[in-house]
Amino acid sequence: MSKFVSFALGNSLSAIRMLAAAGALSLLATAQPAMAHDYKIAELKIDHPWSRETPQGAKVAAGYLKITNNGSEADRLVSVTGEISKRGEIHEMLVDDKGVMTMRPLADGLEIPAGGVVELKPSSYHVMFMDLTDSKKKGERFAGTLTFEKAGTVDVEFAVDAIGGASEHDHDHDHGDDHSGHDNHGG
């Protein structure tokens, strides 16, 4: 799979367009859009950023990924962008024991402890893409960036699953290896 050259301060619109073009190329190159994919920056490993198709006209989308910190120092995910939206935030969502869903932005980002693993996944932390300007279909990908306090910015691609993708599965499984299983409960 092709990896992008890292944009030092790459948040400009043109950079995002270039990422989009590069994303389209890499999609062609892999021919297996749902394949697990991962990224590295400094001591951090990022596993399988993914998102879901959004209902027609939706203004928000969630993004998920797993971050492993192999270093001896904690780091912090402080910002996220995606080419499908004007803004990205890092949120914590939960459904409490009374069945009430709450969702809050994490103003200070999300700490990745030294030697630790943090997973953004359904019913937990997620990237919140807000003010969507585009919507992708299942099997497509979109470009984005993850910025860490110490490690800096890494370019990634979010693989798009179905609207209810992965929702009825054990959320702890390796998402990337079991993508085909998500096709079974379409509406």
């Binding site: 879901r52 959004t54 209902p55 006209g57 939706a58 203004k59 928000v60 989308a61 969630a62 949120h91 969502m93 459904v95 869903m101 969702m103 359904p122 019913s123 997620h126 919140m128 179905a162 609207i163 209810g164 929702s167 009825e168 409960h185 379409g186 509406g187």
Partner: peptide
């Protein structure tokens, strides 16, 4: 509500699947 990233689309998806 429609500005809902997960619970609402997932539930509507699951109810759609149930109707099916």
């Amino acid at each position: 509500f429609t500005h809902c990233p997960e619970v609402c689309p997932t539930t509507l998806w699951e109810m759609s699947s149930a109707l099916d």
